[in-house]
Design a protein around this nucleic acid. Sequence first.
DNA 1: AAACAGCGCAACCGCAGAAGG
DNA 2: ACCTTCTGCGGTTGCGCTGTT
Length: 249
Amino acid sequence: MVRAPCCEKMGLKKGPWTHDEDTILINYINLHGHPNWRVLPKLAGLLRCGKSCRLRWTNYLKPDIKRGNFSREEEEMIKQLHTVMGNRWSAIAARLPGRTDNEIKNVWHTHLKKRANSNLNSKSLKSLKKVEQLIVEDDKEESGRLSPFDTNSSSQESYSEIDSPQPSSASYNSSTPTSPNNYDETLSIDDMDDEFWSEVFSGEDFDELPVGHENIGQLPSGCGYESNLHDDVDFWFNMFTRGVDLSQI
DNA sequence: AAACAGCGCAACCGCAGAAGG
DNA sequence: ACCTTCTGCGGTTGCGCTGTT
């Protein structure tokens, strides 16, 4: 089916958002939520299309978004998850609290991509396998429990004390009120137990760990790792679609 | 100091799937 | 069952900033 262009109507503004527009959008969502993005800009008095409003909100205005540079651990996490998941940015973002798919995508294309290919040595493969195992174990434990970072669960909340974000990331203050998902930003990946990350990414003791899934234990020759990953379609489907969050482990 | 090139990031576009009538 | 509308996702673009010459 062919959809009409989002902003087919003349007169709708495009391009960078102004501070005033941000304020209007935040205030409106605070009061009414966003049950319908299509009509939201009309009701809020914005000369934007609903798509543009949604993008602005989800990528920059939501209160639980963490701004600023990616930590080394986050970059490693992205690289590992990308090796497993490919370009499923939303799935990767679901495992990086406070980060958006757009932001992760940008980071990947700007600098991580350059490093990733050259860094896939044997040690990286061990780390990768361990990340996968953590996902699988988490998947087992999490059945029925919604990820605290599930963006859907936050959509109906009221954000009463949102700091007015700045259009520029350079000047954005990441200090935001408690998120609607009870996600405490003080527990960001940056602050996670160092032992956890060193363990995950060093891969030194990987061989001592139990295998979480029958396919995970198979290490192909060379870098043909991905071929085994497709042996169990249901397994990967579940992993990709359930939004399990690694940091909860 | 000016011109140019490269990079980073915000935003747009189009498609696919979900949801509702 | 089919059609329409809406949302979400991934790819891509374009502009501004920064570094280099």
